Amino acid sequence: MDVRHFEDRLRARRHELEGRLDRIEHDFEQPRNPDDDDRALERNNDEVLDSLGLQGEQELRAIGAALDRIAAGSFGRCTRCGATITAARLEAVPYTPFCEACARELEDG
């Protein structure tokens, strides 16, 4: 398995997410419109941005953990059972810590 390929993808995604989170934070810092209708729309937008920010932060943590596994030499192995994570699964979700079987068990249970 080409770990360098995944490391490059993870670092690029981390950079993209950090930029997106910076833009979200910048949007929250902008002055709000005094008009009631516009404020209601801004509140709705803030809720969406907040949700996106939380998802981005969770993904950043998962990416950080995956980069730590690369550094430790354990990337590509399930953190739960030790089995090899398939290349197809890593291509889809390069920061996944679980093989397909363990992920399925965790989702079901």
Rank of each mutant, 00 (worst) to 15 (best):
A71L: 00
L17K: 15
D108P: 02
R20F: 13
Y95K: 03
T84E: 15
L54E: 05
P31C: 14
P97Q: 02
D22R: 13
R104A: 10
F98E: 07
L54A: 13
L67T: 04
E25Q: 13
E105S: 14
D22M: 06
D35P: 11
I85N: 01
D50F: 15
R32Y: 07
G53K: 02
G53R: 09
E47V: 09
H5P: 02
R69V: 04
E18A: 10
A65F: 02
N33Y: 11
I85E: 02
E47G: 13
A101K: 02
F98Y: 02
D8A: 15
A65V: 09
A103H: 10
T86F: 01
A66W: 01
E91N: 14
P31R: 14
E47I: 07
T96I: 01
I24F: 06
T96F: 00
C81G: 10
G64R: 05
C78H: 13
D50H: 11
G76K: 01
D50Y: 15
D27S: 09
R14K: 12
E18L: 14
R11V: 12
E59G: 10
R39F: 02
P31D: 15
E57I: 11
G82S: 13
R13Y: 03
G19E: 10
L60K: 03
E57M: 10
D22S: 12
L52I: 10
E107A: 15
L54P: 02
D36P: 03
A87G: 05
D8H: 06
A72C: 07
A71I: 03
D68N: 12
E105R: 15
H5I: 09
Q30I: 13
T84I: 11
F28C: 12
E7M: 01
P97N: 04
E29G: 12
C102Y: 04
T84S: 15
D27K: 13
P94N: 11
R104F: 03
R80F: 02
T84H: 03
L90C: 14
D38P: 00
R23E: 13
A62Y: 01
C99H: 00
E100F: 00
E18R: 15
Q55A: 10
D2H: 07
T79I: 07
G76F: 05
